[in-house]
Simulated scan of single mutants.
Amino acid sequence: MSKSPHPDQRYLIALVNNDAGVINEIYKKCAGKVKSFILFNNGSADDAEDIFQESLVDVYNQAKYKKLELTCPFEPFLLLVCKRKWLNEIKKRSILPVTKSDDSLLHVGEDTFEQAELLEKQQEQTETFLKAFEKLGDRCKEIITWSMKGEAQEKVAETLGVTYGYLRKKKSECMASLIKMVQNKL
């Protein structure tokens, strides 16, 4: 049983037909995220442009010559292709063995679509978490931020100028509020 194409298949059709308007839309939606990922992972703005462009060409070739059909949203799929391409590039630059040849880099199977869907869900969850976190009071944000740094709670309590017991109780209350907001989608 095969899945039917995702409505975002229109992006692949636009690439194949060189539809400038929709290709512009792809750049607006995705280029900034790719740039952020690559800059965060030891790359430059030029690297980001190159990887994004190469990935679009790869996706275009898959769509035109191998009849690629999306069964997931386009954006996380493209971001996953870019991420794989950049990680491979980092390995090449560090003269480590490259794990994937360029041919297999864009091997598209159900696992690729599943990973792209998972990536999209993770992004949504992260956004929900960050929105909920921002709604917390300053003291809760401070306690959670310090606690997430991996320091011993005794040290966190000392740094924040509170007792260990107060910190544990307050952290528990803050986390409960945060979890409740996330579960209720704010």
Score class of each variant (00 low, 15 high):
C30N: 15
A14E: 01
K35G: 01
K33R: 08
Y11N: 01
G21M: 12
V22M: 13
L15V: 06
Y27C: 14
E25K: 15
D8I: 02
N18P: 00
R10T: 10
I23N: 07
A14G: 03
K29F: 04
R10G: 09
E25C: 04
S36G: 11
Q9D: 02
I23C: 11
I38G: 01
Q9N: 11
G32R: 12
N24Q: 13
K33A: 07
I26R: 01
G21E: 15
Y11G: 00
S36K: 15
K35W: 01
D19Q: 13
R10S: 13
L39R: 14
N24E: 12
A20H: 10
G21A: 15
L39Y: 06
I13H: 05
A31N: 06
H6V: 06
I26S: 03
Y11M: 05
V16L: 05
C30V: 11
G21T: 12
C30G: 08
Q9E: 07
I26Y: 04
K35S: 10
F37L: 12
N24I: 00
A31D: 03
Y27T: 08
L15N: 11
I23R: 10
C30A: 15
H6W: 07
K35M: 08
L39H: 08
Y27R: 12
A20Q: 14
V34C: 05
N17T: 09
R10P: 01
A20D: 12
K33V: 04
D8A: 03
V22Y: 03
G32F: 04
N24F: 05
N17G: 06
A14F: 00
I13Q: 13
C30L: 14
H6A: 05
E25T: 13
A14M: 00
L15I: 04
E25N: 15
R10W: 06
N24V: 01
V22W: 06
N18C: 10
A14I: 04
G21W: 09
V34G: 01
A31Y: 11
G32A: 00
H6I: 09
S36N: 13
N24H: 13
C30F: 02
V16N: 02
I26K: 02
L15Y: 05
A20P: 00
V34I: 11
G32I: 08
P7V: 10
I13G: 02
A20E: 14
A31S: 14
A14V: 02
K35H: 06
A20G: 07
F37C: 04
N18A: 14
S36R: 14
V34Q: 01
D19K: 10
L39C: 09
G32V: 05
K33W: 00
N17F: 04
K28A: 15
G32M: 05
V16F: 02
K29T: 07
K28F: 08
R10N: 08
Y27W: 11
L39K: 15
E25A: 10
K33Y: 03
I13R: 12
K29C: 07
V16Q: 06
G21D: 13
V34K: 01
I13E: 15
L15D: 09
I23L: 10
H6L: 12
K29M: 05
Q9G: 05
K29I: 06
D8E: 09
G32N: 09
L12K: 00
D19A: 13
Y27P: 02
L12Q: 04
H6N: 14
F37Y: 15
K28W: 06
Y27S: 14
